[in-house]
Amino acid sequence: MRHRVCLSVNGKAEEFDVEPRLLLCHLLRAYVGLTGTNIGCDTSQCGSCTVLMDGKAVKSCTVLAVQADGCEVTTIEGLAGADGLHPVQQSFWDHHGLQCGFCTPGMIMTAVEILDRNPDAGDAEVRHGLEGNICRCTGYENIVKSIVAAGAGGTS
């Protein structure tokens, strides 16, 4: 049994014919070719696959593509406008908020929601807000710094 799924990915309407078991992360990676959304675990712990679904951060490994039918999905590739970087992306670059880069797209997408909820989020709030994202390289220090700076720097 296959299903038609229509969704907007980074502002572009797309239509797919999928098995119901297809996960959103696999749809984005294999069907749309947006491989910026990485998959780091299989138990919904690591947050590498975080995307925005109707503006909210979700783990795309824990959403069926059929559940996303009709939704607007934003991935790391669609975060910035046509030119330049989103302020959170820029801040990760400025503050060495990444090393291997694998968790980075998920970190950035989660950071967008953290700052959306509170643009003035401080160190402790950001650390708490990252409870669903694992980084093995940075020790989080510069990720936290990047997010706090992006907020104070005026993402709003």
Partner: peptide, 14 residues
């Protein structure tokens, strides 16, 4: 960094 922060990392799984 620009490629990583824009989701353009070239990992084997890609």
């Amino acid at each position: 960094d620009p490629r990583f922060i824009q989701g353009k990392g070239r990992y084997v799984a890609n």
